[in-house]
Design a protein around this nucleic acid. Structure first.
Lengths: 215, 215
DNA sequence: AGCGCTATCTGACGTTCCGTCAGCTAGTCT
DNA sequence: AGACTAGCTGACGGAACGTCAGATAGCGCT
């Protein structure tokens, strides 16, 4: 299913090959978090991995291609974000807890993978379908079940019919992603990390249920 | 005050110089909206402007430097975003109109300048203070007066004391920016442009006032 | 018009990085 | 040990970078 790891010219990589490939990915990841994307060069990644540029090209078509690989890995891990929303109830006190947990989990996932995520964001915004799909995969993990939750509330008459569940869920998730990506930005408005979270949770709660939370 | 336009080596540019400089900026802008940021080369911009690469370096230190210039221009124009929120009331029917107008104005500004904005976003996320400041300048235009509006409602007892106005305002604006940057993304969730706007307006209204809108 | 001044532009260069290939190296198997 | 091959790399032609010294052209003056 997943297909074995292959070199650029189509051969299957063996044990040693996989190891260097992995090392290259690690170094790329490191590189991405220390220098601007535009300045990440194949030559630097190779040097850091203690190998030659030619080796890099054996496993990846270019920097972008390798970044996609990293992103794909992260997207797999990101599937666990579903757990943040799956099987949660959005009524009463548990709803507040659900909102808090969602915000918390989402922010920490984003912070942990910020370097790759900002490149994915860029690629997606530029219209590159490959990045776009990866971004979707991650966000879908949350958005879909959030959409379902809203639909459910709507069916029970607890949320207005005029609401488009997918639009609201998508917007809320986009908000979380944006805030996570620019957390430092909030400091300049005099908003501290710790203060940010409950306010985000409030917005999520309001968006999903249409009501103020009962804490 | 604003300082005249200067060449890289510090001399003041004359009429002709300004013209080519401007042409270079235009071509760069064009380039940014047609190819990925990582692939925008000085040589291409120069070629498109019908001049030599050396000329480019007379006016800008590198591509990034030129992008900053473009961004600064846009930020100036972005100051008009204040008008979307200044002097609006967030009570009753006018509040709904205010939310709608804000969403509308914000989205169209973003769409108009998407190419530069995504580079600014990237730079800011990467921690580059110059881009970061520009991003702030644009967002502040909206966030500050939104913050004030929330504070005002809070003083009147219409909004809960536990709310941090800056955090909420900032988050809402971040949401608008993120949704604007990834508008295409919503199509894949089956959400159309036209549907998106009222739902965003709803979220803005909920966020600012804490209540459902009366349309 | 002709002259000279200086702002502006560019050809040309050394350097860095790209991406490819043929050939070398080092694990592995018998 | 010998041979087989997966994996690595030196070396190369080409593209883009960033810099400089020198060419060009617009402008003011007579």
């Amino acid at each position: 299913m997943t297909g074995q790891v292959r070199t650029v010219d189509g051969r299957v990589a063996g044990r040693r090959g996989q190891a260097t490939r992995q090392k290259l990915l690690e170094c790329l990841s490191e590189m991405l978090s220390t220098s601007p994307y535009r300045d990440v060069k194949v030559i630097d990644v190779a040097r850091m991995a203690g190998t030659s540029p030619a080796t890099f090209y054996q496993y990846f078509p270019d920097v972008e291609g390798a970044v996609l690989e990293l992103a794909e890995e992260m997207a797999k891990e990101g599937a666990t974000l579903t757990d943040l929303v799956a099987g949660r109830t959005w009524v009463g006190k548990p709803a507040w807890a659900a909102a808090e947990d969602l915000v918390d989990g989402f922010l920490s996932f984003w912070r942990k993978n910020d370097a790759i995520l900002r490149v994915v964001d860029l690629g997606a915004a530029e219209g590159d379908k490959r990045f776009y799909k990866i971004r979707m995969k991650i966000l879908n993990a949350v958005t879909n079940s959030l959409t379902d939750s809203i639909k459910e509330l709507q069916d029970k008459g607890r949320v207005d019919k005029s609401v488009n569940p997918a639009a609201v869920a998508g917007s809320l998730v986009a908000m979380l992603a944006a805030v996570a990506a620019h957390q430092k930005g909030f400091q300049s408005w005099g908003v501290k990390q710790a203060e940010l979270k409950p306010n985000l949770a409030l917005l999520v709660h309001l968006g999903v249920t249409g009501k103020k939370p009962t804490k």
